[in-house]
Design a protein around this nucleic acid. Structure first.
Lengths: 328, 328
DNA sequence: CTGAAAGCGCTTACAG
DNA sequence: CTGAAAGCGCTTACAG
């Protein structure tokens, strides 16, 4: 590998001068700067980030914790996070997060790389990682969802309000027996959504909303969904915790119970994943602005890094109702 | 941060002894080893990987180039790649790959981190990255798809044979006018699939297969698909380049043209994404063994690293026909 | 503006 | 088996 010393030799300057040319805001004359740049280009020189990190004590590496669940949405988001990070001079290192206990020993070794910060997009997200981060005082920001008992910065959607809007929408659409369908991973974001929904149902209907807790996985969710649809007084309007669950519900209703949507059952999703717009579903749903959430998460994290503070920013942004054909 | 020197002081040994304890295969007595380990645990010591990389000249970082296209499949695969890498002592750094030219200057700076190798899961994958890798002699392995004009190791499915099997399946199912539906990103893997399909159609039917090239994106693919279905002598059996395209085809056929599947049109997919198994689609498709492809890619790359050779391994593994309800 | 030198936290011959 | 020392490739006071 070619080093700054090689470049220095070719350019006829000292090694420290070469270094200065590559450090933002170091003083050096235009003349030597271009001379060094030419030499660097000729030799195809790249400053070694590891050596740099060693002296500056910052790695410009951000750890990304993301869900291992099969969730159609996150690939695009991951791309956005990683390219935005790149644009701001950072790189993203994946922190594969296993839910099972015996794999948790794999976390510590990621900290050998001394990531400057962590973005956590995982729902199920226990205390281990928090403790590790705190121990090394690595700032952490939660993306799109927040775990229970967690105390960190986050950028999420305004879930309480989304729940409220969902209840109002169902009421307006003439639903008599509203219910909430959700998965089995407890998050604060999901609780808030339920709370907003139920508070409003209580207010508008004078009784609590129905609640069905199943699995976030399509296939595993089906049996319970089908069982619910079998009941005599089944709900006639269901707000779903995710679009994927809404799709499972629609599929079960149509194919296992010969129900028409929205005539026999109205369905409201949450996320606005690409599948929601497919001709076959045309799902009415709440769009989470993942693009903005990604940008804001990064802003929050980098601000925390540059200010060296542990001040926590907790941001909520509104969702938008996308009306398609699964509600009236 | 606590360093090996701190641990040494606490354990009453030299700094180099501490280092040896953390280096695989260094000689040291059991007694000092446990003594050092205790001290390390007490101080919550983590060897600094950057410092390590500086002397060993290997980073144990693998660059991951992945598609920015919205493709439902890859999240799970990414998870698998990253956790397998982790288990083998490596970490994954994301290399966000932009297709537009003006973003290509973002690639070089990733090499400041001196990744030991690169896994490329991107279809559209031009020469820039190859050249960079070659310049720094960073081995690269292509995952699941190979670009045209690329010359590197890869682990892919046996696409020619998949095409052959697809033609045979359609013939057996009584299809009269078989066609191939594909996207607009040229890859060798896709060409091979088409070649296998068309060679076999030629042989079984005595004439070439139909060919429709559209876009890999659902929404953008719809207009051309719909137009094709409008034609009088439209195909009655279509092999699709991806499951996503197959789903777009099914949706268009059912919702825009009132065609029944498989009665009026038989559909064959490729990939076996989760959506293929949804009640609404029950898509007959070829399952790519992504789990094995991920494992093998990593094996190939790490073997190349440890042997310090530039010997290229090119691996093809078979696909499996999953019969569901979109064919007879 | 620039050079010489110390130091970041490790690994690894080299002695003992 | 273990310690002292050199070196990996940078950055950053410190002088000039």
């Amino acid at each position: 590998m070619v080093t700054s010393r090689d470049v220095a030799k070719l350019a006829g300057v000292s090694q420290s001068t070469v270094s200065r040319v590559f450090v933002e805001g170091s003083s050096c004359s235009e003349k030597t700067k271009t001379k060094v740049m030419q030499a660097a280009k000729a030799l195809n020189y790249r400053p070694n980030s590891f050596a740099r990190s060693l002296t500056t004590q910052e790695s410009r590496l951000i750890g990304l914790v993301f869900p291992d669940a099969e969730y159609p949405l996150h690939m695009k988001t991951l791309q956005l996070l990683s390219s935005t990070l790149q644009a701001r001079g950072y790189s993203a290192v994946l922190i594969p997060w296993q839910y099972d206990d015996h794999n948790q020993h794999s976390i510590p070794n990621i900290f050998n790389y001394r990531v400057d910060g962590v973005i956590a997009a995982s729902a199920q997200f226990n205390n281990h990682l928090y403790e590790e981060c705190q121990q090394f005082s690595i700032p952490i920001v939660q993306f799109a969802r927040v775990a229970h008992n967690s105390n960190s910065s986050f950028a999420i959607s305004d879930n309480y309000n989304a729940g409220k809007m969902a209840a109002e929408k169902l009421k307006t659409a003439g639903v008599k027996r509203p219910a909430y369908l959700t998965g089995n991973i407890p998050t604060l974001t999901n609780s808030e959504r339920w709370r907003g929904f139920n508070d409003t149902v209580l207010q508008l209907y004078g009784h609590a909303a129905g609640l069905l807790e199943t699995n976030y996985d399509y296939e595993q969710a089906l049996p319970l969904i089908s069982q619910m649809l079998d009941q005599a007084n089944r709900p006639d309007g269901i707000f779903c915790s995710t679009d994927l669950l809404a799709i499972a519900l629609i599929d079960s209703a149509r194919h296992q119970h010969q129900l028409r949507i929205p005539d026999d059952l109205q369905v409201l999703g949450f996320d606005d994943i690409p599948q929601a717009a497919w001709l076959n579903y045309q799902l009415t749903t709440f769009k989470q602005d993942f693009e903005r959430l990604a940008l804001e998460s990064i802003n929050i994290l980098l601000a925390q890094l540059s200010q060296q503070t542990s001040h926590q920013t907790q941001l909520m942004i509104p969702v938008q109702l996308i009306e398609r054909s699964t509600t009236r």
